[in-house]
Structure formats: structure tokens, C-alpha cells
Amino acid sequence: MSNRVTAVGKPVTARKGRVPRMGKSSRSLAGPRPGPLQYLLLIGLAVLFVYPIWWAISSSLKPPAEIIRDPLSFSPGSATLGNYRAMFHDVPIGTGFLNTVLVVAVKGAMTMFFCPLAGYAFAKYRFPGRNLLFGVLMLTLMLPTLVLIIPLLLEMSELGWVNTYQALILPGSIDAFSIFWMRQTIAAVPDELLDAGRVDGASEFGIFARIVLPVIRPGLAALGVLTAMNVYNDFVWPVVAVNDEKHQTLQVVLSTLAQNVTGNRIGADFASVWGELLAAGSIAMLPVLVLFVLLQRHFINGILAGSVKG
């Protein structure tokens, strides 16, 4: 048994029997291991969610007639790339994919740069009208996208941006949800860290770049994945903002694929259309799957970051 003196001068006795074991504590925090039934349930759910992806990819490698005749079976010996070759010949999917990559890169970069700055201002600065301005920003989340299409289209027409990349990139690049997400994430950063940076002479932007950004990295990763998926899957605004083949995104190209196949090939049957649709769909979903697999750990950590209050 040993004694130590606190800051107020009172001795405190430390008992050996009261010292917790780190191993036992870590085991208790980890929680119980899943049982066999839970593993079976998780495996069943995984198969349930993965099977449609496997079916689409495997069916895209089958001859068109076999897709209609026996849609649930797959024989590796009959695998062919004919659907992919025909699809690339009949529709400009390469142009649509390049346009989508450009829009995702530029629009995503604008979202990831400006929205964290706006969220930082709402979370850590005190200025007149802050709550009112943030409330108005939140009210915009209640507006359906279809309500904004006509005003945005008229604005693009006045600016002369119809059928341009500006029309695809700028509207929605700084959105209310991303600002709200960043505001909630940055609000959990202790103010003491920011004060320590100011004491050391760091500028406000330096505090944001060197202190805040490393702390909110999981939230940024989650926002990046959500932004990339939303822009990649966006269909309504691209189909309204552009009507020429040069600026069409991948989702617009996919929506008109069946019409392009039947229009470019005389006597194209229903099976051929299905084969090329599955081939195009398989190519379209691969980038999203790869992105999620690469960033899934950061994405899940970012989603769960606000669930634990510390």
C-alpha cells in the first residue's frame, strides 16, 4: 500500500486490489463474440446483397440468347465478351464515362474544399445572424430537387451555360447537406485545440488545415464517398442541363442505351438489348464498388463518429 499527496495537500491511498486490469477492460469493451447463428445470418445477408451484382456481371458474359433462355445459370465455358464489344460499338459509353469522371472530380473537389470551410465557420465562429443563416440553410433541405430544376435551368440559359460543363458542375457543388455534415463533425473538435493553435501563432486557415482537418478525417472520407456516389448516380439534372451527346454523363447514356442499340443496329432483338444493358450496367457499377471497398473503413468510421459522445 502506498500514499501520494494531491494538489490540495490531502493524502490519497492507492489500494492494490482496486487497480483494474487493462486486458480485462479491453475484453469488456470489445463485447461478446458473435455466435454461430449470427455468423450464418451475416453470411446469408452477404449472399443476398452480393448475388444481384454477381448475376448482372455473369449474365453480361453470356450469349444474348442464353440470357433469355436460362437467366439463372452460368457456364464459364460459354463466357463471351460479345455483349461488351457490341455495347461499345452501339453507344458512346466511353464519352459518357469520361464526362462523368470529369464532373465527379471537379464537383467533388469543390464540395470537399468549400463545405468544410462553411461548416467550420458555423461550428466555431460567433457572428451576428449565425443561427438564422444556418436555419435558412437547413430549410433548403426540405425543397424537392424537382422544384429547383426550372429556376436553375432558366439561370443556366441566361448565363449561356446550357450544354456546357459549367451547368453540370456548378449547381449543387456547395449543398446544404454537406455543410450540415461538416458543421456537426467539426463541432465535436475541442475548442482547446484551436486556442492552443492561436497561442502558437497559427493563422485561422492554418488552424483549420493543420488541426481541424486531421481530426475530422473520417468525416471527410464519409462525405467524399457520399458526394462521389451522389454525383456519379445523378440523372435528373444532367438530362435537363445538356441535350447533346458531347456532354452527356454516364447515367444519361445508360438511360438511352436501349434506344441507341435498336436505332444503330437493324434487326436488333430483345435478347441483344438485354445483353448490352447488362454489360453497360456492369461497367457503370464497378467504379462505385471499388471506391467503397477502398474507403469503407473511413466511411464507416465517419458515419459512426457522431454516435459516440466523448
Rank of each mutant, 00 (worst) to 15 (best):
G172V: 04
D90M: 12
A202N: 02
A46Y: 02
G172M: 09
H298M: 13
L40W: 03
V236N: 11
E192V: 15
D90W: 07
G108C: 02
S203F: 01
S178Q: 01
K107H: 05
S307C: 11
A46T: 04
S282D: 08
D200G: 00
T249P: 15
R297P: 11
S58Q: 07
S78I: 09
E204Y: 02
G281R: 09
P92C: 03
V252D: 06
N260Y: 09
G197L: 05
G96P: 04
I211V: 15
M156N: 15
V261L: 12
F205E: 03
L141E: 01
I150S: 13
R21C: 00
V162D: 07
M156S: 11
G310S: 12
D195I: 05
E276M: 12
L213C: 13
A109H: 00
G129L: 03
V50W: 04
L41G: 12
M22P: 00
V162G: 04
A65S: 12
L194A: 03
A305R: 06
K246M: 08
Y84W: 08
L193R: 01
L194G: 02
Y120C: 00
T140M: 01
G302A: 14
Y120K: 04
Y39K: 05
L291Q: 06
F74S: 04
A86S: 15
L250I: 13
K309P: 13
P116R: 07
I186R: 07
N99Q: 08
P71H: 04
V8S: 15
I207F: 03
H89I: 07
V147D: 08
A167Q: 04
L152D: 10
I207G: 05
S73N: 10
L40Y: 01
A228M: 07
A123T: 02
A79C: 06
G197E: 03
L152A: 12
G23N: 14
R297I: 14
A187S: 10
L154F: 14
D200H: 00
Y120V: 02
Q259N: 05
P76V: 04
D244E: 14
T6W: 09
H89V: 11
Q38R: 13
N260L: 12
L294K: 14
L291D: 05
A280G: 12
A305E: 14
G172Y: 07
S59H: 05
V212L: 11
I67Q: 12
G94F: 13
D191I: 03
F270Y: 09
S60Y: 08
F122T: 03
G306H: 13
S282L: 08
I43H: 02
Q38N: 06
G35H: 01
G108F: 01
P52M: 06
Y84D: 07
V91Q: 00
F134A: 00
L223M: 10
S25D: 12
A202S: 03
G129V: 04
I93K: 06
N243L: 02
G201M: 03
V212F: 10
E276H: 13
L139A: 15
P34N: 11
T95I: 07
P218C: 15
T13K: 15
V189H: 07
A271E: 09
A202D: 05
L81G: 11
Q251I: 06
T140H: 03
P151C: 08
R210L: 14
P32W: 04
